[in-house]
């Protein structure tokens, strides 16, 4: 079982790698899009701005490689934070930018009154139905968030979990083999590890 962590120069990769290793996976952290061939599972991490993230994915050749692996070969992928947002069709951070388009929807700024932005800290994730990603995790468990933008999926079926910060926003998305969490499972201590193990278990079964 080998998990590829995509290194496109956006954010904290060491934590993701360590967390996956703790969960029992072999991990490749790579800048080289050819490495996607060997991956049983893909993690798209990321901290930063949407437009910069997409630019880097394209410049490094990840755009095409990802689309082939994820859409054609159905390799499981988990996008984390910015990585989740990049799964959308469009992002509006700094300027309107085309995303990977794996889950229909767009990413917009959290616009709130009387609530502080960025949304930083531990907050509850609620889900309506059972899902393999959430096995052994109680509904309402706290995960660690740090973001100013949020994903609005076009289809309700893509919504797996929601969180409230001033209003209810989408914190977990899914479309078949494609998953995304707005929070950071690799920084969410024990429950974050349970979620990562669930993702790895699913990937192994594919």
């Amino acid at each position: 079982m080998t998990t590829l962590v995509i290194d496109y120069g956006m954010g904290n990769l060491a934590s993701v790698r360590r967390a996956l290793e703790e969960c029992g996976s072999d991990v490749i952290v790579s800048k080289d899009a050819d490495d996607i061939e060997d991956a049983n599972a893909i993690i798209l991490p990321g901290v930063g701005a949407f437009s910069e993230g997409m630019q880097r994915l394209h410049d490094m050749g990840w755009g095409k490689a990802l689309t082939k692996a994820v859409l054609e070969e159905k390799t499981p992928i988990l996008g984390i934070c910015l990585g989740m947002q990049l799964l959308a069709d469009w992002g509006y951070e700094h300027n309107k930018t085309k995303g990977l388009g794996y889950i229909a929807g767009e990413v917009v700024k959290l616009e709130l009154q009387n609530t502080r932005i960025p949304h930083i800290g531990w907050n509850e994730v609620s889900y309506k139905e059972e899902n393999l990603l959430l096995e052994h995790i109680s509904n309402g468990t706290d995960f660690y968030f740090v973001h100013s933008y949020h994903f609005i999926p076009q289809n309700q079926e893509a919504i797996l979990g929601t969180t409230t910060h001033g209003f209810e926003f989408v914190s977990i998305v899914q479309n078949n083999n494609i998953f995304g969490t707005q929070f950071h499972p690799e920084k969410s201590s024990k429950n974050g590890f349970v979620l990562l193990r669930n993702f790895l278990k699913f990937s192994e079964s594919c």
Binding site: G11, N12, A14, S15, R18, E22, V47, Y144, V146, E186
Partner: peptide
């Protein structure tokens, strides 16, 4: 950072954009 699975915020001596990039890549979250 390798031993820290909760959010890890690091300060001290940060001067440049490159310092920030490196810190984030070695495991700092903020």
């Amino acid at each position: 950072a390798m031993e820290c699975f909760v959010p890890f915020t690091v300060g001290g001596g940060i001067r440049t954009l490159e310092d920030v990039r490196t810190l984030l890549s070695v495991g700092a979250d903020k």
